[in-house]
Design a protein around this nucleic acid. Structure first.
Lengths: 340, 340
DNA sequence: ATGAAAGCGCTAACAT
DNA sequence: ATGTTAGCGCTTTCAT
C-alpha cells in the first residue's frame, strides 16, 4: 500500500509521467496550452494514480493571487441569529474565493483571544467580528497594530478604526416602545442584560426614552445574566413570582432567546400568552415565527452578506474611506401581543 | 504610512534589529536560548514596531509539526442540532491545535462539492461530515482516493472506509414507539422525510416494527419535504386539515425542527397540545425543553467531541483499525405528551 | 553568540 | 514543446 506519511509531491508526479515538474505545474495550473493533448493525458493520469494534491502552503509562497481566508467571530453559534449571520457571510464569500474560519466564543474570552491568535498566525486576511468587543479590547488593538482589517457588527461606538455595520437601535427601541404602549396590559416590565454592549444600551435607552415621551410608566426592570434561553427562564421565573398576583403583565425582552426563556417561565406559572402576559422580543430569530412571538426584525442574513462585502472591499483597497452602514429594522406583530 | 501591499517579512525584522534572519527565526520560535536577553529585546522590539507576523504558508513549507486543519460539513448550521455538534467539535479541537473550516451545505449539493474541492486544495488534513452522503458519493470517493481521512456521522451504511459515529436508531425507534403506545390518544400519525438517509430510515423502521409488535395501528404516514421548520408547518397544516374532525391525535415527527412546524400548525388550527394533540419529536434540540416537547435525546455535543477525537486518532495513526462508535439515546418526557 | 547557506514544494522567468 | 534555474519566506543545519 501507500507509505504512511510522505505526501506525494509534484516531483513524484513528474517522474511518473516522465516529464519535468514545470510541465506538471503548468498543466495543472491551466497554463499548458502549448503542450499536446498526449502530455496532458499522461500528467492527469499520473496525478490520478498517485492521488496528488498540490501542497497549499508551498503554492502560496509563490502565488500572487491567493484564495482569501476570513476569520469570523460570533458569541454563540447555537443562537440562530448568529447561525444566520454566518450563512450570509458564507453566502457572499463563497463566490468571492474565500474560506471562513468560524469561532464561537461562548462567553470565554480567554479562549477567544487564543483562537484569534491562532488565526492571526494562520495569516488570516481579515476578520468579521460579531462578538461584543470594546474598541479598546486588546484583540482589536492587536488587529490594528498588525494592520489586519476587520468589520465590526452591531457595536455603535468605541471603535473608530474598522468598517462597521450597525442596526438602527434607536428606531428599534422606538418601535418597541410604541408597540408596548399600544398593547399595554397591566404593569410594563423590561428584561435587559446585566452586561450591556453599546448597541444594546442604545436599544434600551431608546425604549425608555420613547416610553417616557408617551408618559407610559415602567413598573420594573429586571437584569438577566446573559442573552440566553436559560438566563431568560431564570429571570422569567423571578418575574412570575414577584408579580404572582397581577392578572396581567406586559414584558419586553431584549432578545428573542431571552423571550423564549420567559415563555417557559410563564407556562410553568400556568399563565397564558397573550391572555395574561403580553410578550415581545427582539431579533426575529427563525424561531420567533414558530413561537408566535412579536419582535423586531433585524435583516441578519443581509447583514452577514454586507459585512463580507465590506471586508472584501477593504482588502481590495486598504485606504478607502471607513464605511459605517446602518440597517433599518421593522416591527413584526404576532400573537404574543395580540388582543384576544 | 505603511506601504499598501508589501507585507513585512522576516528580513525586514532582521534588518531593523540589526541581526540575521536566523537569529530572528530562532528567537521567535523559542529556540533562542543561546542569545542574550539584549538580542531578544531588540528582535521583539523590531517585531512590535513593524507589526510582523510570520507568513503562515512559508513557515509550513519547512515545519514538521503543523497545526492541523479540519473541514466540517453540516447540512444546516441554523439547525441547533448541528450548531451544537460544531461546538463539540471545536471544543475538542481547540485543545488539540487544530482549526476548523465550517461549511453549511444548505441542501445545495453543487455548492458542497465545490467547497469541498476548495478545502482539499487547502491541504485540509481531514473531514468531519454530518451532511448525509451516500457511500458512493463522488465526494467520499475522492477523499478515499486522496487518502484524506474523514469521520462520518449518523450514516449507518454505504460506507465501509471512514470511521463513524452512529446513534442507536433502533433503540431510539423503540423508545418512540413505546412512548407513543403509552400516551396514545386518537389516531397515530407519523411524519417522515421524503428523502430518507440510512439512519433516518432505520429510525422509522424501528418505530414501525415496535408499534406492530405492540399491535398499535398507524393511522397515517405523512411525508415532509425537508427536516426544517417550514416543511413541518406545511405538513402539519395538511394533517390538521385531513383530521379536522378528530378530537384527538397523536403525532410523531422525525425531528424536533419538523415538530416545531407542527406546533405552529396545531396552534393555527386552534387546537391544544397536549389536550387535543400529543406530539413527540426527535433530537432534543436546545429548543425542545423550552417548547415542552417530548423527544429522544441524542448526546450531540459529545458526538461532536468524539468525532473530533476519532479524526485526530486517525490522523495520528492512519492504519489503525476502523472505528465505529454507537451512542445510546434516551427518552425525554415533557408536557407535549403529558396526560392533562 | 551569530550567520551563511541549504532546502521545503512549488511557480514563473528564461532558455533551448 | 520542454526543461533549467531562480526564488517565494521561512526553518534548520552547520560553520565560525
Amino acid at each position: 500500500m501507500s507509505q504512511l506519511n510522505k505526501k506525494t509531491t509534484i516531483k513524484d508526479v513528474a517522474a511518473k509521467a516522465g516529464v519535468s515538474v514545470t510541465t506538471v505545474s503548468q498543466i495543472l495550473n491551466h497554463k499548458g496550452a502549448r503542450f499536446p493533448a498526449a502530455t496532458h493525458k499522461q500528467v492527469r493520469q499520473a496525478v490520478a494514480d498517485l492521488g496528488y494534491v498540490a501542497n497549499f502552503s508551498a503554492r502560496n509562497t509563490r502565488l500572487t493571487v491567493r484564495r482569501r481566508t476570513i476569520g469570523v467571530l460570533v458569541p454563540q453559534i447555537q443562537n440562530p441569529f448568529f447561525a444566520n449571520l454566518f450563512r450570509g457571510i458564507q453566502d457572499y464569500l463563497y463566490d468571492q474565493a474565500a474560506d471562513t474560519f468560524l469561532v464561537s466564543t461562548d462567553g470565554d474570552n480567554v479562549k477567544a483571544q487564543q483562537y484569534m491568535k491562532q488565526l492571526i498566525h494562520r495569516s488570516v486576511d481579515g476578520f468579521i467580528i460579531a462578538s461584543q468587543l470594546d474598541g479598546q479590547d486588546p484583540l482589536l488593538k492587536k488587529l490594528r497594530r498588525l494592520r489586519i482589517p476587520y468589520v465590526l457588527l452591531d457595536q455603535n461606538e468605541g471603535d473608530q478604526a474598522g468598517d462597521q455595520i450597525i442596526v438602527n437601535e434607536r428606531q428599534g427601541g422606538q418601535l418597541v416602545a410604541a408597540h408596548l404602549a399600544a398593547v399595554k396590559q397591566g404593569p410594563i416590565i423590561l428584561v435587559v442584560p446585566r452586561q450591556q454592549s453599546a448597541n444594546i444600551h442604545l436599544r434600551i435607552a431608546a425604549v425608555k426614552a420613547e416610553l417616557a415621551r408617551r408618559q407610559v410608566e415602567i413598573a420594573a426592570i429586571y437584569q438577566t445574566s446573559a442573552l440566553e434561553k436559560s438566563a431568560g427562564a431564570l429571570t422569567g421565573r423571578q418575574i412570575m413570582q414577584d408579580f404572582a398576583t397581577a392578572p396581567h403583565l406586559t414584558i419586553w425582552a431584549v432578545a428573542d432567546e431571552v423571550a423564549l426563556g420567559i415563555i417557559k417561565a410563564v407556562r410553568q406559572a400556568r399563565k397564558q400568552i397573550p391572555e395574561n402576559v403580553k410578550l415581545m422580543g427582539y431579533d426575529d430569530t427563525d424561531y420567533a415565527d414558530y413561537l408566535n412571538l412579536t419582535t423586531i426584525h433585524q435583516p441578519v442574513v443581509t447583514i452577514g452578506r454586507e459585512a463580507a462585502a465590506l471586508l472584501q472591499a477593504r482588502l481590495a483597497d486598504p485606504v478607502r474611506p471607513r464605511q459605517v452602514i446602518v440597517k433599518p429594522v421593522t416591527l413584526v406583530r404576532r400573537d404574543s401581543t395580540s388582543d384576544d
